[in-house]
Design a protein around this nucleic acid. Structure first.
Lengths: 214, 214
DNA sequence: ATCATTATCGAACGATCGATCAAGTGAGGC
DNA sequence: GCCTCACTTGATCGATCGTTCGATAATGAT
């Protein structure tokens, strides 16, 4: 029995035009982000959608392909998006501020997806695992590039740019865990708080070789 | 066949006095921290130790009991240890510095164990899951208490102490992920870097209601 | 109306999971 | 020597895992 048009959800007779493939991905994101890859069976996914397990295999060859499809439309583009920030400004500090905001906004848009790919354990087979690590490595390199520019301009409070990068990424990535969209503060205010914390932590208060005052 | 005395590892005929129970815990920590709870089967653990699966059930009633035993000797004491810092100093800033160092040292001592219990997904049954969340909640409350004291003394750069607490915990917890003991810097130097970053990020540069100058 | 194509299902496969059981083994006390 | 008890094993259980298969129902083009 192929369904007439699309979803035809019980509670939404309107223009809910989600394809099965999209429904599968959406449900998988929900369950993967909550119980992990190994903790979510394809039977769980199928049950939540009210379809059969074999139906899923009509859209994805394996369970891992479903995982990779999620990665494909979400976090895969993060490095490119962050890389593009570099050209937006010539001032290292302002440029870095844009990087942080772009990172927070991108991660926030795909919060659950990002959380999935930050589960560090190699629950996935070699292919998916390598891809995740590769993306994280690219993001780290982008941060190191920005920090090197900041250091050269005398902005940084420390010489250990690698540790600094890890600290910053810790703040940015941790935000994916605790942030709830229904909180009291709008996302923009939260972003400002996080960015100010990071900049205060990284930037030298009294820049010795200052090239641009506040 | 009960083994003669203790481990009697092939490569270590010395005083290697690890009990089976300790061996099981040690191996479980290694595998859990690498592949997660669901990603590690009791057969994996038994195979790594060269024993039978049923042998493990002589020391632990269930797989989850093994997980809880790890929690019992490692992260379970973290809240108490951090709570004890409060009495060590009356100065909010110095006290907070001690808190950060105690947290980093405690987590670092049980790095792999701490990583296990930070895997946020509820891979575990209700009991273990609740315990982990409960510990994390306690730690958060301790930080909020310190931050409230800092705020009252005019030290803080922001009013949003909850977001600030999340940011700080992000840095501290993230360190468990990237730190390798065989790095170029000694642990103490790494701690200093992290603590300075956090303090710079949290503390107001020009305290308005200052009660204690640098 | 016909027919190829797409979408969907129930049943089943072999593998692995956590857990159980009855049976053995050896060390130490008597 | 014997008995007890802690330790260890291989075989096995039922459940669940990811995956496959053959059949069937609906769709769209002609």
């Amino acid at each position: 029995m192929a369904r007439p048009r699309a979803a035809a959800k019980v509670s939404d007779p309107g223009q809910d035009e989600l394809s099965r493939k999209e429904e599968l991905i959406r449900t998988a994101v929900e369950l993967f982000s909550e119980h992990g890859f190994k903790g979510t069976s394809i039977r769980d996914i199928a049950r939540h959608l009210g379809i059969s397990v074999s139906n899923m295999y009509h859209y994805f060859e394996t369970k891992e392909d479903l995982w990779l499809a999620i990665q494909e439309y979400s976090v895969r583009w993060l490095p490119d998006r962050l890389e593009a920030v570099w050209a937006l400004s010539a001032d290292p500090l302002e440029r870095f501020r844009l990087l942080l905001r772009a990172h927070l906004e991108s991660s926030g848009t795909y919060q659950k997806e990002s959380r999935i790919f930050m589960m560090d354990q190699d629950q996935i087979s070699k292919k998916g695992q390598g891809k995740s690590k590769q993306i994280q490595k690219k993001v780290l390199d982008i941060y190191l590039k920005h920090l090197a520019a900041l250091q050269q301009a005398g902005y940084l409070a420390t010489q250990q740019t690698k540790i600094l990068a890890f600290n910053i990424l810790g703040v940015v990535n941790w935000y994916l865990r605790w942030y709830k969209a229904d909180g009291p503060l709008p996302a923009e205010r939260v972003f400002d708080e996080i960015i100010n914390f990071i900049l205060n932590g990284a930037i030298n208060k009294d820049r010795p070789t200052a090239s641009k005052p506040v």
